[in-house]
Nucleic acid binder design. Structure first.
Lengths: 383, 383
DNA sequence: AAGTGGTTCTTGATCGGTACAGTAGCCGAG
DNA sequence: CTCGGCTACTGTACCGATCAAGAACCACTT
């Protein structure tokens, strides 16, 4: 079956590794701890501890001797868990991603955000733990995982996971959530951005605009009879953007047709876009909740033989990397997800610091600006 | 001010702890522990512990009383850290991403992989901790973060982080790494896949093929004089794919021009692609290490006014989601990154299980298949 | 010679829990 | 009336480390 045989090259050296695993087998039985080293060297446990954490507390000679012995016995340094217990901090911060964890890895905005968090946290030595909202099997990550603080990201309002975090009294930073006094929050000016997008279309002469939005209950798909009302229970960001769209369109006397997309993906978006664009008279433009949805709209237009922007303009939101990968490149509202991640990480480390010092924290509230980026997908209303 | 005031009554004995709690009161609101609840209810610490972990060990009435009291005092359940210490496991598994953490969030293959891991881990209640390879500031995540096992993903050979993990004796699963007896490994048949891609071009009549590859030292950019030799120190996956490309091309008597791309991104790839396609005679096809690079190649071709696939064929690798988002859609070698993630997560949970039972683990070695997916970006050699 | 100050190491308590081996009270069987 | 067997709790010993004091020793003052 393997028509290609084993990989060429390699010829690697396996030395050491095999020995390591042999040791590991035994090691799991008789663990090496500070005490083991202490006994071996003939000093107290504390001195060994100091050899690792406080070089200035013992003589260089002794330290060298201890480190050498530790190395010989295969001791890798103080156990992280035990250290965490006594220090009262685990050295990890959590990220709560409600819907599904996969989202955090797929959406361009989420990944930019997380990348920034990772970059910002790196130097501090904190690591990043992903908390899934629902731990089946009786385990609730938000309750049972050791973290020093949490970034609550893109999380629905009724999250029990979030409630656990609050109960635990952990330092929290709310990201893209409705600001809540008592917690630091970081977000972008969604409302303003949405207004910019809508105004752009209005300025181009569009008076009949379709809206593609997601973020509400997965149950409601398709045209929204009364968008404002139906959006009341939605995620904060969705509500904000929708409000921005509608406020401007209504003020301009334009007709708006809003459709809710079941899930935040381009396929689902294309489906709704087809419905919107199939109407007669056809809207001359589409305002989308995100670039992901806009990409779906682009695809739908293409399938229907409509030229963008000549027949229909499409405007996205986020300035996802995706926005410049599609053709035509998307006119969109730019948010700096990376900056958002940086700000969130800073806010959290700051909160961690004040919590540690016992200072009463004064939660920051960051709102990053949004701006319109005009590219190829929008143009004057036809006709 | 204190809207919740100190715990009512609480005739408990704070002896010994009182000094500490006096400080704690200021610092972080006197902590509530098992003992606090025990004192309040008038039972032993152990009984409270059982109320949370072993309902069958006490009467339902007592349990209800304890739980109610715990709730009243704001106790959220046993401290994860302390529990981890005594249980010997932290409930989190790590993912080691060497280069930069951001990579794990940007590349489609990495995200698919991680999404699968997350999905697979969810039900087990394990959470996911991202380990950056280099913790500046004296902190080395691979050494200092509490995890039960680690997925070593896309990691260069000389990783000290990886060495720490090995030293710690943690269960490891190597993903897309050179298989190492002693550790479970999961990967795909890169060599075979690369052969398929190359053979596809050969079958289409191409005899002059450019190769775009990354994964070597960032220093070496541009044309490789002696690809096979220069690739010796490269990442396993890069070596495998390059070998597959070259073996087939050489066997077919085709001319191969390989360029190394500094970083795994489309911009850098476009740059190299421009160089390759600027040659005279121009190669009639481009074999790319990944779809990301292929996307860059596509962009370069477009900029140069070359039609794909009429003037030049482009073949990618991975079947990244990106592959069907670009125009023309990419002919590529499909790997199932999601399945890879699933397999890796399973292998690790399995390793965790055997390690716990003390059974001598027998590391699995999974090699997932790869297959050619022909789309729009490849066609017969021109002329 | 006693006092001062600085290293270098040790002791005992503690972090918050869980495992395991009791112990008491109670019930039916012999 | 006593004993095995339950049920419902309790006591003690860790898990592997760190912290805050304290002790021993050394060189130097005064």
């Amino acid at each position: 079956m393997p028509d290609a045989g084993p990989a060429p090259a390699s010829g690697g050296r396996y030395a050491g590794r095999s020995a390591a695993s042999a040791v590991a087998t035994i090691a799991s039985v008789a663990r090496v701890t500070l005490q083991t080293i202490a006994d071996e060297v003939g000093v107290s446990r504390m001195t060994v501890s100091n050899a690792f954490n406080r070089p200035d507390q013992l003589s260089a000679a002794m330290r060298a001797k201890i480190l050498a012995t530790a190395d010989r016995l295969g001791y890798t340094g103080p156990d992280p868990t035990a250290r965490a217990l006594v220090r009262g901090s685990s050295g990890a911060i959590g990220v709560l991603l409600t819907d599904d964890l996969a989202y955090g890895f797929r959406d361009g905005v989420a990944t930019d955000f997380l990348a920034a968090v990772a970059d910002e946290l790196g130097p501090t030595g904190l690591s990043l733990t992903l908390l899934s909202s629902e731990g089946r099997d009786g385990v609730v990550p938000a309750r049972d995982v050791a973290v020093d603080g949490v970034l609550v990201f893109s999380c629905s309002l009724d999250s029990t996971a979030r409630d656990w975090l609050v109960k635990r009294g952990l330092p929290l930073v709310l990201v893209d959530q409705e600001p809540d006094p008592g917690f630091a929050s970081v977000g972008i000016d969604d409302y303003h951005g949405a207004r910019l997008a809508a105004q752009h279309l209005v300025d181009l002469g569009h008076r009949h605009v379709g809206i593609l939005i997601s973020g509400g209950s997965p149950g409601t798909v398709g045209r929204l009879a009364d968008p404002r009302r139906e959006a009341e229970g939605w995620k904060y960001v969705s509500r904000q953007r929708l409000a921005g769209f509608l406020d401007v369109l209504e003020a301009a006397g334009a007709e708006a047709v809003a459709h809710h997309v079941a899930e935040h993906g381009d396929h689902a978006a294309a489906e709704q876009a087809r419905e919107i664009l199939g109407a007669n008279p056809r809207p001359t433009a589409l305002l989308c909740y995100s670039d992901v949805l806009a990409a779906g709209a682009l695809r739908a237009a293409e399938d229907m033989g409509l030229a963008v922007p000549d027949d229909v303009s499409v405007v996205g939101f986020d300035d996802n990397p995706l926005a410049t990968r599609v053709r035509p490149e998307l006119t969109t509202v730019r948010q700096d997800a990376y900056a958002k991640g940086t700000a969130a990480a800073r806010a959290l480390t700051e909160a961690l610091r004040t919590a540690q010092d016992g200072e009463p924290a004064e939660p920051v509230e960051v709102v990053l600006p949004t701006e319109l980026v005009v590219r190829e997908s929008s143009g004057p209303a036809p006709g």
